[in-house]
Design a protein around this nucleic acid. Sequence first.
DNA 1: ACGCGAACTTTGCCTTGCAAAGTTCCGCTT
DNA 2: AAGCGGAACTTTGCAAGGCAAAGTTCGCGT
Lengths: 100, 100
Amino acid sequence: MFDFDKLDKLIHERGRLGIMTLLATRPSWPFQDLKAELKMSDGNLVTHLRTLHEAGHVAIIKEVHLDRPQTSYALTEKGRAAFTEYLAVLESIVKAGKEK
Amino acid sequence: MFDFDKLDKLIHERGRLGIMTLLATRPSWPFQDLKAELKMSDGNLVTHLRTLHEAGHVAIIKEVHLDRPQTSYALTEKGRAAFTEYLAVLESIVKAGKEK
DNA sequence: ACGCGAACTTTGCCTTGCAAAGTTCCGCTT
DNA sequence: AAGCGGAACTTTGCAAGGCAAAGTTCGCGT
């Protein structure tokens, strides 16, 4: 009836789902902005980002901004595709839950 | 920007999200049907159901059907309300992810 | 009395989230 | 030059929780 297997566990976890959702709304996000928005400890945040990066979902962009190091993150093609598929499952759940 | 805190952890977990979604589609579900649909071990399934029951989200209905014990499960009012709220968050995520 | 199936509990493993503290890097200040 | 401070990242340790396999209970039917 539903493909709960398709609920990619990597994306489904709360913290990472937050990251992915934010990344989907803008071309790129600086680390500090993500941290402020998601209210995670930096250790926790960087770990999730690394997990997503290792899965090929997130690209890491290192720059220097105003004489400060600034690392930004962005969805990769693969990441966007995976997220889109994930959203499709969510959508079917929402739809099923609304009709009743 | 998003209320990821509202993503009730109790419901968000894959297994329990599956249960809640199924329960939302019909008035009640026998244990065996849930098990078949979700392909969980009965130990795992009953544990999730107990967790949801203790949270007041799920009602347990014990009957005897065809001379066999048959336990069914249904959403409570509270459960349906919580699930509806959860779905609202999902919906905002889906919406945010689609526009871009 | 025995077996069987449904539902449930117990046990144990193992993953994983999470935070706190520590590390590295580097530009700026004094 | 030495030290401060902030950004980003690593390490460590803990605790929670998912999950399956095996064991338990409780009827009913033969």
